Simulated scan of single mutants.
Amino acid sequence: MTDLPLLTIGVTLLTCVLAVIGVHVYSSGKAQRQALVDRMAQTGEVVMPGGRRRRFSGVDRRLRTTTLGKRIERKIAVTGLDLTPGEYAVYVVGGLLGLYFVVGAIFAPFFGILAALIGLWGGNAFLNWQRVRRTEAFISQLPELTRVLANATQAGLAMRTALAMAAEELDDPAGEELRRVADQLSVGHSLDDALGELADRLPSRELVVLVTTLVLSSRAGGQVVSSLRNLTETLEERKETRREVTTMLSQVKVTALAVPLLGLGFLLLINAMTPGALDKMTGSVIGQVGTIVAFALYAVGYLLIRRMSRIQV
């Protein structure tokens, strides 16, 4: 027992030495890896992808082999989200289970099933909303894009070089989308095909006009600079008009969202005034059918209000 303090000190010193050696090995290995990445990036041989560690790789591999997985992958590709199909599927399933238990506990089990079905539709609607959001962000950058292309072509640069330069100067999403176009052009794709795929990924009338102008100018020649200058002014005016229309219709959009929320509020009020009323209401077939019809009417009203407030500029 008299040697216990010495033994403790010895073990502590040995642990410290091993910790120092481990830190040194880790730092030297990290420095060697970074030097290797920098050397390969300079030679252009390999570009090691960065980013976060992917989750649910097993689910992702199995899902990509199915038709549903390929469809999800195509939708995610045009949204700009840093997600894999496997991650998206797991998150959606987890969200559906959470909706079922939470809504079922607050209202009634039947409402949990309806919430899960609505959440399944909401997962697809979320991807569509992200695509529209990305398209709107790209449209807002079109005036700056046409200005950069006009300046580059006026300086004597070819359209391929002008697109690559615009990809470096513009922020995302325009920068990322133009980098895809530049990569396709660098591997031999024609300008028509590369720009056509861009218009398919981000469908909008403004982008179609720009793509048509660039394609026709590359085919038949002509005053590309003057066409881009005029297009820049037109896009600036359309951008201001779209902003004004969005501001004017904001109250209508809030109303479309408030109507179904009021219905849910009334259900909560009824259940608070008479505990168990929702369980009794959805305990019979007639009550379940009436609940489904009521939710369907709320959905139709929401869609009709959004449809009437949709103005194409």
Results as ranks from 00 to 15, higher is better:
271 N>E: 10
252 V>T: 12
144 E>A: 15
167 A>Y: 05
151 N>D: 15
170 L>I: 03
95 G>P: 07
192 D>P: 07
250 S>H: 06
84 T>F: 00
81 L>W: 11
45 E>S: 10
121 W>E: 06
77 A>E: 10
143 P>L: 03
41 A>W: 05
93 V>T: 13
189 H>I: 02
99 L>Y: 02
18 L>A: 15
256 A>V: 03
94 G>W: 02
270 I>G: 10
87 E>T: 01
259 V>P: 05
214 L>S: 01
228 L>T: 07
170 L>F: 04
74 R>G: 07
75 K>A: 10
262 L>G: 05
163 L>K: 01
71 R>D: 10
111 F>S: 03
26 Y>E: 11
98 G>A: 07
249 L>C: 07
9 I>R: 15
152 A>S: 15
57 S>I: 13
220 A>L: 15
305 I>C: 04
116 A>I: 02
103 V>C: 03
141 Q>V: 11
192 D>T: 11
110 F>C: 00
261 L>W: 03
299 A>E: 05
283 G>E: 02
195 L>F: 09
235 L>T: 11
40 M>H: 10
184 Q>R: 08
286 I>L: 12
107 F>Q: 01
96 L>C: 04
298 Y>F: 13
181 V>D: 01
45 E>H: 12
187 V>K: 04
306 R>K: 13
62 R>Y: 09
295 F>H: 02
6 L>S: 04
123 G>H: 02
275 P>K: 10
143 P>E: 01
152 A>L: 15
262 L>M: 11
288 Q>L: 01
65 T>Y: 04
287 G>T: 01
224 V>Y: 11
43 T>D: 08
43 T>Y: 10
37 V>E: 03
174 A>T: 11
90 V>W: 01
217 S>K: 07
24 H>P: 07
79 T>Y: 08
178 L>Y: 01
159 M>T: 07
275 P>R: 12
160 R>C: 11
206 E>L: 06
65 T>D: 05
48 M>F: 12
86 G>C: 05
34 Q>S: 09
270 I>L: 15
94 G>C: 02
140 S>K: 14
251 Q>Y: 15
20 V>R: 14
237 E>N: 08
52 R>H: 06
99 L>K: 05
46 V>A: 10
254 V>A: 13
21 I>F: 14
14 L>P: 04
107 F>H: 02
138 F>Q: 03
279 D>H: 15
13 L>W: 12
35 A>N: 07
287 G>R: 00
204 S>N: 09
201 R>A: 03
302 Y>F: 14
92 V>M: 10
90 V>C: 00
45 E>G: 08
115 A>P: 00
121 W>A: 12
57 S>Y: 06
72 I>T: 00
148 V>W: 07
190 S>H: 02
292 I>D: 00
197 E>D: 10
259 V>K: 08
307 R>Q: 13
177 E>P: 01
220 A>G: 11
140 S>Q: 13
265 G>P: 05
57 S>H: 11
194 A>S: 08
240 E>V: 15
83 L>W: 02
168 E>M: 12
164 A>T: 12
186 S>Q: 12
34 Q>F: 03
62 R>H: 09
51 G>E: 00
247 T>A: 15
284 S>C: 14
35 A>Y: 06
153 T>L: 11
131 R>L: 07
150 A>D: 05
49 P>F: 05
17 V>M: 15
119 G>P: 00
135 T>V: 13
218 S>Y: 10
244 E>K: 12
90 V>S: 02
155 A>W: 11
127 L>F: 03
191 L>E: 07
36 L>I: 09
10 G>W: 04
189 H>F: 06
